[in-house]
Design a protein around this nucleic acid. Structure first.
Lengths: 268, 268
DNA sequence: TCCGAAATAGAATATTTATTCCAAAGAATG
DNA sequence: CATTCTTTGGAATAAATATTCTATTTCGGA
């Protein structure tokens, strides 16, 4: 018995290699599974058996012929691939770590990978409707207030930089000197609030203040259940892949610039 | 008991509605699940329980509070949604770009692409030797000073954030109040200076000051001919691909974190 | 500080799901 | 046509997983 495939690609290759030489029932399995690789992660043996019109034991034999100990082992391949976004990521990560763990170059490779993965995830999950709505709200504002502290601070400062370059009136609430500028929020202004778990009280508090005064609030956060959601009119979510304790911010910054430039364009 | 959500959107909405008023353990469930909606389809109760750091029974109670009969029913929602499948990155990016140019979604696609290209470029061009040298210089320092203004400011602030999180003494020279803290540079300290064309005088000036006092200076800039080169012991270069007038900073930030974490590791 | 209600953890149980095994059917070979 | 090897289906078993239940703990209000 040959070894089991260790990636989805390898799995597919093996499949097309073998399917010719398989007896009837097993070929049915192979064909059905090849046509539904995207369902394997969320199916049971009997789901697949029903789909391929074979008894469950045929599916089991099929898994074993491919080199897996059973269905569960085969399914793990697909569950992992799904969870991680791309199939080979975990394997590559393991190799990199094993190779030369801790060396600066290895670390850099990890962060580059994490950044890339974050960008790809955002491409898949970006909510166009929310983005358009955010742009509309912000482009009507007389002044755009920006707040983001701790990990979100770099994002906030970059937004402030971009707005300034485009001659859009914007104010960064940076908390310097513990000065609170909430009263700078005036009628017809809007707020961009950025915060990720663990959420910053100051940011939430300013968002609440703005919301209660009736200003449009655009929230940039990590998920829809964030406490920021209740104070924002529009929520944009970004999941950054983290490596170690730190995140790359790549996706967050990309989304921020896109937002800012779109606002700039909308204002003409 | 209210009826269970019948779509993932509804589920997320319900979640953000409730999460405020939930007791501790259930809130942990809500937060973890909200941040990992994409994993639910392929997780077991105990996977989620482990991730949320609660016992499995808490996850069950959580499912029931949301209106499901149990975990299996909740998971079905996500398994079904999964089957519809996300388009892959390439497809999605093409779709985003296809939306009439200038639309927020199209802009986002461009910035995501630019970001990814920058990361890939850095992966190919990174100078391992310089990186190692930079890590060495910085890990010996008693305090690390960081300066980066304008476009480089977000990078500098993120570096300061990361150093702080790792308990490494660091000082951000942010120019607030036009205060000049160059005399905070002391024997055995080191400086990270970050600047891109058009180069910031303040940054160059501080680098010069440090160099003349004999402190190690690590320069992060756009190319080896940068004016920063003459005041730095080690030069790290990053080319960010720009789209329109703005750059994504993805690669610069990835390099910065890698540098910081490597320094953290070297200091033990 | 006490009481009652709410929340919790973990063990016990039920259910689903995966896996094995073997008798029977079918194909190939001489 | 008999023999042998392969394939098959389904029942029996094992394992994983979900779910319930209850003794405790925690929390909030008198």
């Amino acid at each position: 018995m040959t070894a089991a495939p260790s990636s989805v690609e390898e799995f597919c290759a093996r499949l097309s290699m073998m399917s010719q030489s398989l007896p009837k029932r097993l070929r049915q399995c192979a064909d059905y599974i090849a046509a539904n690789t995207d369902r394997i992660a969320v199916s049971t043996v009997s789901d697949l058996a029903t789909g391929a019109d074979v008894p469950p034991s045929a599916v089991m034999r099929f898994c074993q012929i491919l080199g897996f100990s059973g269905f569960s082992e085969m399914q793990r391949l697909f569950k992992d691939a799904y969870t991680l976004g791309w199939p080979d990521y975990e394997t590559r990560l393991r190799n990199l770590k094993a190779a030369d763990s801790g060396s600066p170059a290895a670390l850099l490779a990890e962060f580059l990978d994490a950044g890339r993965l974050s960008l790809e995830t955002l491409a898949k999950s970006a909510d166009e409707v929310a983005l358009n709505q955010a742009v509309q709200n912000l482009s009507r504002a007389q002044m755009i207030h920006v707040i983001g502290l701790r990990r979100a601070f770099p994002v906030a400062t970059y937004l402030a930089y971009v707005f300034e370059k485009m001659n859009i009136p914007a104010m960064l609430h940076d908390g310097v000197g513990k000065l609170d500028h909430r009263h700078a929020l005036r009628e017809k202004d809007a707020l961009i609030a950025i915060t990720f778990a663990p959420y910053s009280d100051e940011t939430l508090s300013l968002a609440q203040h703005a919301k209660l005064r009736g200003l449009p609030v655009v929230g940039l956060t990590d998920h829809l259940g964030s406490p920021l959601a209740q104070w924002a009119d529009t929520i944009l979510t970004v999941q950054e892949v983290d490596f170690g304790a730190f995140r790359s911010l790549s996706a967050t910054i990309a989304l921020s610039i896109a937002l800012a430039v779109a606002v700039g364009a909308a204002r003409g």
